[in-house]
Design a protein around this nucleic acid. Structure first.
Lengths: 384, 384
DNA sequence: TTGAAAGCGTTACCAG
DNA sequence: CTGGTAACGCTTTCAA
């Protein structure tokens, strides 16, 4: 993981040294030949009125045809459609939205904080769901403050919202609920009455992982938990995973060994060191840190511990990412793309009036790869 | 990488078996207490007219204040602002957009085809650039057909577009240029007159990689190239990387060893096998396959070849992903997030009338990690 | 510095 | 089945 700087364009830090990029400025385009005008209307001169005139019908009729309303004579429909085709007309989305009072758009509020290879897949899934339903898809990064959320709702930019990073008690949820603004969650609150969500079942996932490891003879199983700060804030995954871990350990008569840290390589590494220092007999760990679990791998490697011979590791992680680890990570699979897709689908269903509230809590799948091994009898007696 | 199915919720394929998810339907919400109405307007009753009335001014004045126009008495401004605050007013975005003829939105056209850990970072970067400039950000997956692109332009949904996966001759580019519709590219064509872009300099990147390896004594350096189909289509990265590789090899008096494949694990694995079968003396390879390079790693491992002792590997890849490999990948760093950010920034600058065309071709940075080693003298004489 | 009024391009209601 | 017309909520001349 170490790297050094060489002479010629070889650097450790891959920071974008923008000032040194090859930047060619071709001068001012102004109103010249390129003719890039910021006016979107320049591209869309032909309106519904033009169509009406050309086809010898009224705008209402054209509108009806555009919206596939039934009460139009087939012959008229054909004729108008031909004109539309010929003039290359496409409706002005903003105008449609204003007049119709709906935007046919959904938005995903994506936490700005830390990027994670896993969570990015939510985006594509949600976007796909939108496009499948002919909705447009907004991605909003930057964590919204309360007034910003209000503004978003009132702006009518979007018909509904997908919320992520849900806390057990989440002000955004209460607020949107009170406003009656449509939304769904990836994650869930303590109380989810009347709200659709899809969530990873961390509770069962962790229990499953612990039991699986215990079944292989492991007795000292640690949890590399999310930050205690997140736990205190009531961040769902942090609370549910940790609580479930403790409970499962108790049930199985195992000691709970928890070490918390933020999803940052340096902190996960420090946490892992701490863990190994304090618990020399450790034979397995469960990581909540997604791809950052690599930091734990490196620490183990550094300390001469082999995976899985000396230590078994399980993480909550996307398949694609799990496969990049060596050895590949045995994992509770986190199908982030599918989660995003389902969230989008649910939201749109809700918008289209199917009043059903959906609570999706897929049962976690443990995918066996190569980071877990059974504990040999010799070690089961605690001889670290 | 192999995995087996166990009895209890343990599966190899992490496919979402939706039918078996725990799905609770809480009945029809209808017009009940949840009150989720699809009408966005329900949330936004207070209009600019209400403000005007309450403040005792005209709508024009309120509008001016909303848009920070200079010609308003400071005292009036204060008073109206207070009313806006008090009534919790937020402008109706669709109405603004319709009236103003601008959407203050940009869109990223994201290729639907294959997902890649790397390319997903483009999205967040572009979204950030938009949010930094108070623009909204559309993400459109699904590859647009020609009529769909036309429709997008005419719809006035967005003021400008970011294009990806650029081919040397790209119909979308010609089309948008002809239409005079604002756009920028991540990637570049053969001829980029008057068009802003940011592109990875694959040409120099590959040259740098080959020269670096050659400098370490390697003589048999292979290129795990992108699919020959992509090459034939004129996909920029495919063409530029391969051509540069061949050229650099010739310059250095090395034989060119190219094997092409799609960005799919199975194909990359097959290509790697083929490579090793046909070129037993191989000591280094350069991969264009991003995170799919893991497939090559696995093949090497499988065949008992150590990285970097037996084979050195260099790839074009994001730092975050490179660190997941073991050993960590020495790489031409692909700062995808920054690319996305710059593309967004450029587009918005263009929309705001700074007519400067920017051609950004940052010099590729080789980041040394641990997948490359110098060739011992003993092996330099070709004794595989 | 302010106000009145004419759009912006659709949709949707109401007559016919 | 079709046409007129009033919204939709805001921006932007043009006068005052």
């Amino acid at each position: 993981m170490r790297a050094t700087r060489l002479k010629h364009g070889v650097a450790f830090t891959p920071s974008l040294d923008i000032a040194r990029w090859i930047i060619k400025i071709f001068g001012i385009a102004a109103g010249s030949d390129t003719g890039h005008k910021p006016m979107a209307t320049s591209t869309n001169d032909v309106t519904i009125a033009d169509i009406a005139r050309a086809a010898g019908v009224s705008v209402s009729t054209v509108s009806r045809i555009l919206n596939n309303k039934p009460d139009v004579a087939e012959e008229t429909r054909q004729r108008v459609r031909a004109v539309i085709e010929e003039l290359g007309f496409t409706p002005h989305a903003q105008a449609q939205r204003l007049a119709a009072g709906r935007s046919r758009a959904i938005a995903l509020l994506f936490p700005d904080a830390q990027r994670s290879l896993m969570r990015e897949e939510f985006i594509l899934g949600a976007a796909k769901a939108a496009s499948d339903a002919s909705y447009t898809f907004y991605l909003m990064t930057s964590d919204l403050s309360r007034p910003q959320l209000t503004a978003l709702c009132r702006s009518a930019l979007t018909d509904g919202i997908i919320l992520m990073e849900i806390h057990l008690r989440d002000w955004r949820v209460s607020y949107l609920k009170r406003m009656g603004f449509p939304f769904v969650m990836i994650g869930r609150c303590a109380n989810n009455n009347g709200i659709s969500f899809i969530d990873m079942d961390f509770e069962h996932g962790v229990a499953q992982a612990v039991e699986y490891l215990a079944g292989l003879g492991h007795r000292k199983i640690a949890l590399l938990a999310l930050s205690s700060e997140a736990y205190k804030r009531g961040y769902g995954p942090a609370v549910r995973s940790r609580d479930s871990y403790v409970k499962t350990c108790r049930k199985l008569g195992l000691a709970s060994i928890v070490v918390s840290s933020a999803d940052i390589a340096a902190e996960v590494a420090a946490a892992t060191h701490k863990l190994l220092d304090h618990h020399p007999g450790l034979t397995a760990m469960i990581s909540m840190h997604g791809d950052v679990t690599i930091a734990a791998y490196r620490v183990l490697e550094e300390r001469g511990l082999r995976i899985p011979e000396d230590i078994s590791v399980i993480a909550f992680i996307t398949s694609r990412t799990a496969e990049l680890f060596t050895p590949p990570l045995t994992a509770i699979d986190f199908p982030a793309y599918e989660f995003g897709y389902q969230a989008g689908r649910m939201l749109i269903a809700q918008l289209q009036g199917s009043g059903a509230v959906e609570h999706l809590l897929p049962s976690p799948q443990l995918v066996l790869r190569r980071s877990v091994a059974a504990l040999p009898m010799a070690r089961q007696n605690g001889s670290a």
